[in-house]
Design a protein around this nucleic acid. Structure first.
Lengths: 183, 183
DNA sequence: CCAGGTTGTGCAACTAGTTGCATAAATGTC
DNA sequence: GACATTTATGCAACTAGTTGCACAACCTGG
């Protein structure tokens, strides 16, 4: 299971409260491991109970009161252990490909608009990644940390590039299908 | 939710028993929507209760006795409805990218072997897809159905190609990192 | 000074997916 | 014909993730 480790990583990078983590999961970390605020609060509770993190001393705990966490040595050790441990790739699920396959047997009626919508979303995401690359990884920034982080971003860029290309191609094929309406 | 629709698609393609479906989910459909046999049996029960599928008449139902299902008109209609309905891409989770990001803060100790292992797995999968392409989509087979199915397979090929290239590049970067052991 | 929005934390219930195990029939084998 | 293996169906319990809602504190304008 990966959510606790995603949180530990985020907290090692910078101690944060639940809401700050939620926001960071909406970008950055969330690009390849999403989580809702409820998952995050629940997990923070568990991680604290296990002695992997603790609340920053300064703040007094009260409901509706900001509560920041930092990673303890045990948490860092657990993160290192998990990172080094061998793991099988998890089976991969993609609704759009499934729908394409269904469309092959029940007809393509209606799916085309959604392909266009997905194409727009992936183009937007790609542009966002390229923006981040320009901002955070100018030439010359190449400490070990920077290189690893750049590699991760590169994976995001390549995946979005794949989707835009594949969707473009799919839409071209659709245009050539018999019975297709040409505007 | 997509599992019932994955099952409907598989059953429209060919009526099957639970175990046959399980086997088909281990390849083909399972390449982009995996499921265990327990998920499948549970879902078959629900789909039957909802009137989307029925057991093939000939067979008598008994535990340990093969029981095949076919799709009813209502099931086909539901599949068509679902296929055409607009859906947001589901957030995407990747443990390996998460571990790379963790490695940037806790060190790359130990992760390299696993990258190599993943590279081998993705190469194998890519080879398998290319085999299927050669077998099932020789030039000239291009009915609408074939073209759509080929498109789906192409996505699989492109994704595995991406992973092999990205992992190769990641391993090259690792080799250049300071403190890296060169054999 | 209080009504309404924003920020922040959190519980409870639900849906989806996984793991482990039980059971029954058919088939091969000594 | 007893025994092990394979084929096939299925239940129960668990883990992971989502959705809907409640609640407290703070901040801001009339």
């Amino acid at each position: 299971m990966s959510l606790p480790h995603a949180i530990l990583t985020a907290l090692v990078e910078k101690p944060s409260s639940g809401l700050e983590l939620t926001r960071r999961f909406d970008k950055s970390i969330g690009y390849f491991w999403s989580a809702t605020h409820q998952q995050i609060y629940r997990e923070l509770g568990k991680l604290e109970a296990e002695g992997f993190i603790r609340t920053l001393p300064s703040e007094q705990p009260a409901r509706g009161q900001k509560k920041s966490y930092e990673v303890l040595p045990a948490g860092r050790a657990e993160l290192a252990r998990w990172t080094a441990a061998s793991q099988d790739p998890r089976p991969h699920r993609d609704t759009l490909l499934l729908r394409m396959r269904a469309a092959a047997v029940v007809g393509t009626e209606g799916i085309e608009d959604d392909l266009r919508r997905h194409l727009a979303l992936h183009r937007r995401q790609l542009a966002e990644y390229e923006e981040i690359e320009k901002r955070d990884f100018p030439p010359g920034k190449d400490s070990s940390q920077d290189r690893l982080r750049h590699l991760v971003l590169q994976a995001g860029i390549d995946l979005e590039t794949f989707w835009t290309q594949w969707l473009t191609r799919a839409l071209e094929e659709f245009a050539e299908l018999p019975g297709h309406e040409t505007a």
